[in-house]
Design a protein around this nucleic acid. Structure first.
Length: 443
DNA sequence: TCTGGGGTCCTAGGACCC
DNA sequence: TCTGGGGTCCTAGGACCC
């Protein structure tokens, strides 16, 4: 996303005719479940996180019961049982495809759209100037809303405003106020002051716990007060991020629309274990799975990583267990997206940070310093110990390895100087199969 | 040997988002 | 007993160089 620099902020741009609509799916995961089971209409629903640990989505009915976002499931068991709340484990494949359908529908309404998350999209409504009559825009938003409902079954709310931050606020009001019926338009609103006055500082996009607290101490309690704050004060308090936010509240757009997603800067794969794990072997097994997953994402996006981080931790909530967490950063000799090599590196990492007699609850891997895969500069492995490593290699079939210029490019297991040489054998053709490469190398 | 300013690069950690 | 996962951006401070 192109961001306005502090210098630019002090001399606001002339043209301020931006017009953003934020479309946000209502209780997205819960709504998805409902699409496939209409009998759940009007009934309380919650959707749980991985391992059924936390509550990550609630229908309005569940919210009304006081079930909080992110609350541990076991703490809500009583309410859930008492009110017969329907409970779902999360089904990301389902939500993913529903998300695609919603986004495809929205794309019909504008050529300029930024998919902000699974369930949210910013639409830039060009031609806003001749749509600037309040009724026009509001009606347009209503059309969008009913179309998404009809085509996908997912209810959405829409906020319309001059800046993204104000569109967020408008969206919130579209959800909260009963009279809005899912659409709230703040463009040229004569009631903007009254509206902003009702928005608590904590509820503003970009203000979290820490900054909300700081602002409250300064007597800034609502969005109107924040909008009218002194530039220098907010700059000191929250840096350029805060300054941008305040300008956005004033209707001066500092956050532009991002129609194409920028390339990933890092890829993480991590998981809490269903139970506590003690042995190094089990830990390695888990990390192997995470690396495999992360490397697949890497190749999907045609990227390669130069840095790999492995981390592990015990259960921070446990009072009785000893606590330990650690991480290790491994700089790869050359960028790679090769599963076997990444696993090899990660395993060495795990071995180094593993400590006996702790009970581990979570581990993960992070791939960093990503570059386009075609820029991989092929320093090659010496594959000197095929037999010993064959077993492990065979478990990975989907590896992005090729034979180029008569030379095999692949990762070795356990060579002391892994980048010093190359395999002499040649594969008869280009291949992406580890098994094949291993066989060639072994002969 | 003393003094100083300005610049870049890197890293860790904080804060926020969905 | 049981507490999610995956991201981004910004800042301060240290190391190093001219």
């Amino acid at each position: 996303m192109r961001r306005t620099t502090p210098q630019e902020i002090t001399c606001p741009p002339e043209a301020l005719n931006g017009c953003f609509a934020l479309v946000d799916c209502n209780n997205f995961y819960a709504s998805c479940e409902r699409v496939f089971n209409p009998r759940l209409q009007g009934r309380p629903i919650v959707v749980l996180s991985n391992n059924d640990g936390c509550i990550v989505a609630r229908s309005n009915e569940a919210k009304a019961l006081g079930i909080g976002m992110g609350k541990p499931f076991f703490q809500c068991r009583d309410v859930i049982g008492k009110h017969r709340v329907h409970v779902f484990s999360s089904n990301y494949a389902l939500y993913g495809s529903m998300s695609e359908r919603v986004m495809a529908t929205l794309a019909q309404f504008t050529p300029e759209m930024e998919i902000y998350s699974f369930d949210e999209s910013f639409l830039y409504l060009s031609g806003c100037d001749h749509l600037s009559e309040y009724n026009d825009l509001t009606e347009y938003a209503r059309t969008i809303r009913t179309t998404v409902m009809r085509w996908t079954g997912i209810p959405v709310s829409i906020g319309v405003a001059r800046t993204k931050t104000l569109a967020k606020i408008a969206n919130r009001l579209a959800k909260k106020s009963a009279g809005a019926k899912g659409v709230f338009n703040l463009i040229d609103s004569p009631y903007i002051d009254q509206v902003l006055e009702q928005v608590r500082v904590f509820d503003i996009w970009g203000i979290g716990k820490q900054n909300g607290k700081k602002l409250r101490e300064k007597g800034v309690l609502n969005a109107k007060q924040l909008r009218d704050i002194d530039d220098n004060l907010i700059r000191k308090q929250m840096g350029v991020v805060g300054l941008r936010l305040v300008y956005e509240l004033r209707g001066i757009s500092c956050l532009s629309l991002e129609t194409r997603p920028p390339p990933r800067k890092g890829i993480i794969s991590s998981r809490s274990f269903g139970r506590k794990i003690e042995s190094l072997e089990e830990l390695k097994e888990a990390v192997t799975a995470y690396v495999t997953n992360a490397a697949a994402k890497l190749r999907e996006q045609n990227l390669a990583a130069r840095l790999l981080t492995v981390f592990l931790t015990t259960n921070p909530y446990s009072k009785s267990d000893g606590q330990y967490s650690n991480s290790i950063v491994v700089r790869l000799p050359a960028a790679t997206n090769n599963t076997a090599e990444l696993i090899h590196r990660a395993m060495r990492g795990v071995e180094r940070i593993y400590k006996k007699s702790f009970r581990y609850k979570k581990a993960g891997v992070m791939l960093d310093e990503l570059i386009p895969a075609d820029q991989i500069q092929g320093t090659l492995f010496d594959y000197s110990n095929v037999e010993r490593d064959k077993k492990l290699m065979e478990t990975f079939d989907e590896v992005n390895t090729t034979m180029g210029s008569g030379t095999l490019k692949y990762a070795t297991q356990g060579s002391t100087q892994p980048w010093s040489g190359r395999c002499k054998n040649r594969s008869p053709r280009y291949t992406t199969s580890w098994k094949e490469l291993v066989n060639v190398a072994a002969n």
